[in-house]
């Protein structure tokens, strides 16, 4: 049947489209030749160069620090926002909060970046904080847009949860804070973990917003990559991309393994 063949063929083409660039990055990271597309034999020399490039290593370290701090802050703030939106009923300003929580998800990065930078400049001019721009301003910016993602993930988990479970705890004598830590938190833990990981990834990946709100001395990894890539293809970056792919693949496999184990028991 025609239809029987059409779907798999398009799908195979689609998956190839998604994965060929990644595979080609990995293959050419082992290319001896500096000319990325001319195969010059196997080599791992680009990995060696990557590990001896202080600019990339420094930027990676900065990005990791920013990622961990913003993901953690975003998880805390996003979870609180999700709790307010799902569990606090009709509080004043609920509509405003809903709008502000979901808007960053569809806001073009250039606008978020520009607006935050202009805010930081205005704030510094008015009362001297934050003094200059750097890691702190990037963390604030990343926390703001990441918390939206966390809030959405946690909110959907909270909505799926049976309200009666929390009511039962209250009924048995637990105060609201106790209910949250005894019942709600353990039950939404998986959503918190995925929210944190998502935030961490988004923070590590962000070029546009960081470029706007960063200052001298706080170049993140994407900013360094972008400036290198703009000048042309560099095999070193291929090696970096391969390392990232490997880390992600290992991470996904581990979580896949644990999820399957969990389903079995």
């Amino acid at each position: 049947m025609k239809r029987g063949l059409f779907l798999p063929v398009v799908s195979i083409f689609g998956f190839l489209f998604l994965y060929v660039p990644i595979v080609s990055l990995v293959i050419f990271s082992f290319n001896k030749s500096k000319l990325v597309t001319v195969w010059g034999g196997w080599s791992t020399k680009w990995y060696g160069e990557l590990l001896n490039d202080p600019q990339i290593l420094g930027a990676a370290w900065i990005s990791l620090k920013i990622g961990v701090v913003s993901a953690t802050l975003a998880t805390v703030l996003g979870t609180i926002a999700a709790m307010v939106l799902t569990r606090f009923g009709r509080v004043r300003g609920r509509g405003l909060l809903t709008g502000m929580v979901t808007a960053p998800l569809v806001m073009p990065e250039v606008i978020t970046g520009l607006s935050l930078l202009l805010l930081f400049v205005a704030m510094e001019a008015s009362f001297g904080w934050p003094a200059g721009r750097g890691m702190l301003t990037i963390i604030i910016a990343h926390t703001t847009f990441c918390m939206a993602y966390v809030a959405v993930v946690v909110q959907s988990r909270l909505t799926d949860m049976d309200d009666a479970i929390e009511e039962a705890a209250a009924d048995l004598g637990a105060r609201p804070v106790r209910v949250f830590f005894d019942i709600t938190l353990p039950m939404i833990a998986p959503a918190l973990i995925s929210g944190w990981l998502l935030s961490f990834t988004l923070s590590l990946d962000d070029l546009v917003i960081a470029s706007f709100v960063s200052g001298p001395g706080a170049s993140t990894l994407p900013m360094v990559i972008f400036s290198k890539v703009r000048l042309g293809v560099t095999p070193e970056i291929n090696a970096l991309a391969t390392l990232i792919v490997v880390v992600v693949a290992v991470g996904i496999s581990i979580s896949w393994f644990f999820m399957r184990k969990r389903v079995k028991t």
Partner: peptide, 30 residues
Amino acid sequence: VAAFNRPTNMMFQSYALFPHMSVEKNVAYG
């Protein structure tokens, strides 16, 4: 009087058992 201070208890239609706690811990919670 808030729910957590009332001398009443409730058995829920969905049972609302705490899924992450054993039977023993569920019953002991109150």
